[in-house]
Simulated assay, not measured.
Amino acid sequence: MFGNSIGKRTCDALYMLVGQAIKYQEIWQYTKIDNSILDIIYNIIKNIILLNNTNKNINKNRCMA
Rank of each mutant, 00 (worst) to 15 (best):
I33E: 01
K46S: 12
N35P: 09
I58G: 05
I6L: 09
L38H: 15
K8F: 03
T31G: 03
L50A: 03
N59T: 12
T54Q: 14
N55T: 14
L14S: 01
Y15E: 00
M64Q: 15
D12N: 14
D39Y: 13
M1W: 04
T54H: 12
G19C: 01
K32I: 10
E26M: 06
Q29P: 00
Q20F: 03
N53Y: 11
T54E: 11
T31K: 12
T31P: 05
N55S: 14
A13I: 08
N47C: 01
K56H: 10
Y15L: 02
L14N: 00
Y30M: 09
N61H: 10
I45E: 04
I33V: 09
N61T: 14
Y24L: 04
R62W: 06
Y30K: 15
T10F: 00
I44F: 08
A13M: 06
G3L: 03
D34I: 11
T31Y: 04
N52H: 14
W28M: 06
G7P: 01
I48L: 09
C63L: 05
K46E: 08
R62P: 07
I58A: 05
A21P: 01
Y15G: 05
T54L: 07
I33N: 00
N52I: 08
K46H: 13
T10Q: 02
D39K: 15
I22V: 08
N4A: 05
M64I: 13
N4F: 04
T10S: 06
Q29M: 09
I48F: 11
Y24I: 11
L17Q: 13
I37N: 09
I41F: 04
N61L: 07
I48T: 14
I45F: 11
I41S: 04
M64E: 14
A21I: 08
Y15H: 08
K8I: 04
G7C: 01
K60H: 11
D39A: 13
F2V: 06
K23W: 02
R9T: 05
N52T: 10
I45V: 14
N55E: 12
I40W: 08
I49S: 04
N57I: 07
V18G: 01
L14D: 00
S36V: 12
L51A: 13
K23C: 05
Q29N: 12
M1C: 02
Y42A: 00
S36H: 13
R9A: 00
I22D: 00
I33H: 01
N61S: 10
N43M: 13
K23G: 07
Y30G: 05
N57P: 08
C11R: 06
R9P: 02
M1R: 11
